[in-house]
C-alpha cells in the first residue's frame, strides 16, 4: 500500500517537474512584486521610475509576495516570471539580469555602474561640530566592525579595508533619524556600538529620507539617515553626506529565460504593465 502511494507521488512530482519548463517568449510576463510598504518595493519603484509623483504605478496584475524568499520561489517556479529581491538574497535558483549592461554585483554597485541600487547615507551639517559621542558613533560605523555589521544585515559595505575601531570611553546622547530603509541597519549598528560604549545613549527615529536631511540641518537629529543621494538644494543648505553602505536590488528571472539584459526603461515598462509579453520586450 505504502509503496503504491509513494510511487504515485513520485510520478506526479516527475510529471510536474518535467512539464513545460521551456521558455516561450510569446508568453505573458508574470510580474512578481512586493507588498506596499516594503522598503525593497519602495526603492525599486523609485529607481526604475515606476513611481511617478509619489504614485506607485505597479501593474495591478502583479503577483504580490510579502517576503524575499517567496519572490525567489515564485520566480524559480515560473519560467515567464520576473521579480526583484535584495542583492544579498540572490541564489542560484534564479538568474539575475544585467541592467543597462551591468551585472548585479557589489563591485558594480560600489562603482556606481549598476543602476538598481541606492546609497545608505548619513547626513550631518557641514559647518556644525558633532558631539563627541556622535563623531565616535560615525567612526564606529565606518570602521571594520561597523562595516561587518552592515554586511551581516544584507547591505553592501563600502569600505572593505576599513580601520579597526577602538572604544574611547565617551559618553552622551546621539539622536539619529530619517530613512526607514536605513533604520533597521542603523538599529543593529547602535546595538553593536552600545555593547562597546555602554555610557552612550542612541535614539533612532524614522520619518523618511527628507525628514532625516532636514532635521539634521535644523539640529534636531545629530545624524540624519537618507537612502538616496542628496539633492542640490540640500547640499546648498549645508548638508554633508557620508555613504555608509550600498543597497542593491537584483532583478531576477527564471534560469530558463533567454533574456540576459534589460534597461531601466524596459523594467519600468514591465512593472507598469505597458509591456505584456517577453517577445514585445525584445523589439
Amino acid at each position: 500500500m505504502k509503496k503504491h502511494v509513494a510511487l504515485i507521488m513520485a510520478m506526479i512530482m516527475m510529471l510536474t517537474v518535467g512539464l513545460g519548463l521551456a521558455f516561450n517568449a510569446d508568453s505573458e510576463i508574470v510580474v512578481v512584486s512586493r507588498e506596499e510598504g516594503s522598503g525593497t518595493r519602495g526603492a525599486f519603484v523609485e529607481i526604475t521610475g515606476v513611481e511617478v509623483d509619489k504614485v506607485d504605478n505597479t501593474t495591478l496584475d502583479a503577483e504580490i509576495q510579502n517576503a524575499t524568499s517567496q519572490v525567489l520561489v515564485s520566480v524559480a517556479g515560473n519560467e515567464v516570471a520576473i521579480g526583484y529581491i535584495s542583492l544579498a538574497a540572490l541564489n542560484e535558483t534564479v538568474k539575475a539580469l544585467k541592467v543597462d549592461g551591468f551585472e548585479a554585483n557589489s563591485e558594480n554597485i560600489i562603482a556606481g555602474d549598476y543602476p538598481v541600487a541606492r546609497p545608505f547615507n548619513v547626513v550631518t551639517k557641514a559647518d556644525a561640530d558633532l558631539s563627541e559621542a556622535a563623531a565616535d558613533f560615525l567612526a564606529f560605523i565606518l570602521s571594520k566592525e561597523g562595516q561587518a555589521v552592515i554586511t551581516e544585515n544584507d547591505a553592501i559595505a563600502v569600505d572593505a579595508d576599513a580601520p579597526a575601531y577602538e572604544a574611547k570611553d565617551v559618553e552622551g546622547k546621539v539622536v539619529v533619524g530619517g530613512s526607514t530603509s536605513v533604520e533597521p541597519v542603523m538599529g543593529k549598528l547602535a546595538e553593536a556600538y552600545k555593547a562597546l560604549n555602554p555610557k552612550v545613549e542612541i535614539e533612532i527615529q524614522g520619518g523618511g529620507s527628507s525628514t532625516g536631511v532636514n532635521q539634521a540641518l535644523e539640529g534636531t537629529f545629530d545624524i540624519g539617515m537618507a537612502s538616496r543621494n542628496l539633492k542640490d538644494s540640500e547640499v546648498e543648505k549645508g548638508a554633508k553626506n557620508t555613504v555608509i553602505a550600498m543597497d542593491g536590488i537584483a532583478v531576477i528571472v527564471n534560469p530558463e529565460n533567454t533574456i540576459e539584459d534589460v534597461s531601466l526603461e524596459q523594467l519600468r515598462q514591465i512593472f507598469t504593465g505597458e509591456v505584456k509579453t517577453w517577445a514585445e520586450l525584445g523589439k
Binding site: 506526479i12 510536474t16 512539464l19
Partner: peptide, 12 residues
C-alpha cells in the same frame, strides 16, 4: 500551482 499552470496553459 505548476500542475494547474501546465494543464490549463496559464502564464501563472
Amino acid at each position: 500551482v505548476p500542475l494547474t499552470k501546465d494543464l490549463l496553459n496559464l502564464s501563472s
